[in-house]
Design a protein around this nucleic acid. Sequence first.
DNA 1: CTTTTGACTTTTTAAGTTACAAAGTCAAAA
DNA 2: TTTTGACTTTGTAACTTAAAAAGTCAAAAG
Lengths: 202, 202
Amino acid sequence: MHTENKDEMRDKILEAALKRFSQFSAAKTTMNEIADDLHCSKASLYYYFPDKNGLHNAVLAKVGEFYFKGIEEAVENMTSGAEALRNIIKHRHDFIKKFCRLELFKILKDGPPAQIAEAMMEVKKKETALIAKMIEKGVQDGDFEVEDVVQAAELYNQALIGLRFSVLEGIPHLGEPTQEEFDMIISKQKKLAEIFIKGISK
Amino acid sequence: MHTENKDEMRDKILEAALKRFSQFSAAKTTMNEIADDLHCSKASLYYYFPDKNGLHNAVLAKVGEFYFKGIEEAVENMTSGAEALRNIIKHRHDFIKKFCRLELFKILKDGPPAQIAEAMMEVKKKETALIAKMIEKGVQDGDFEVEDVVQAAELYNQALIGLRFSVLEGIPHLGEPTQEEFDMIISKQKKLAEIFIKGISK
DNA sequence: CTTTTGACTTTTTAAGTTACAAAGTCAAAA
DNA sequence: TTTTGACTTTGTAACTTAAAAAGTCAAAAG
């Protein structure tokens, strides 16, 4: 393997790791496999990343960035608060479908490795802040009436996310939800979003 | 151990099992312990129940009955749909706090043992039906405006339950939530309930 | 005839072991 | 500065096994 500079090699590794991780999960991917994909030695990977966890974190960070770019765009091109709130559902769903094997939520369930737990807190805050901007827009347009905008944003987010768990409750979910289950969740989320939007409307 | 009749003995066993199960969980309770509590032999337990699972199910059924009795009462004494919907939160919380060690939700996560899965479906339907009655009341009083009452009831239920998961997400929950976490959940559920109620109001 | 039981067998589970695979290191080479 | 093959260390999945708990039953008790 030969690249022009250090950063490029780092990106190549990140790319290869993302491919493996999102197809088979990080747990089922060995450092040797990633090295083989890149036609380089395993030791090289350790020259760019401190350990497997560090690589995993870097992949997660990259993907997270991609996620937020999408929402940020949506916030900028917002025509109305309600519309923006609706759009989140599809955007998030597309994201989850693409990267669900990255063990984003599995990591949380087991025991958040402190390092990631902190990052997750940041992510949540950031996401809530973006949703708050959408609600704020609605308030300024005179559409919405909300006491605490940030609180409402957090609640909107958690209510939608929560449906993912409660809708699947009782169904033995071996790994990822099926397409059918995904559709069920989205449908419910859309309905809840409409009621929520009406609930905070003037 | 001596009792007047068969049913009484069955009840004694159920009572003893509930005590153990709700203090230590069913998994950490042995049939011998229950027998010792009752000063009878383990074999006696098997005279009244086919196996440990059967006993566990019977305990769950008894507790479930208790749960529904409370909601049914609430439905009967309903002054308004909105009020009834609000009351569910407290009622359910009291119930969970009391019986959270009965592995009600743990059972679902692992793999529903078919037998219980079916019963759970029934329970959900029954609960949804009761909530639907509350919403129906609101519709008939001219307070609510809802397309599909049953669907709205299901959504209300799942949205509230879902908050229990999403609010705790990222927090390493070793066993049961703490009091603080419980309070957080209830607070969020109440806020969501208000928005939901406003969202289906005329 | 119904209910209870002690003594028994079978099944589950937790602890300990081991062997292999994967993680991680490093001195030397490119 | 970057890469690598050969190496050591660590983690994990597959067996083994001994204790504990589940579950059975023929006989006893009322």
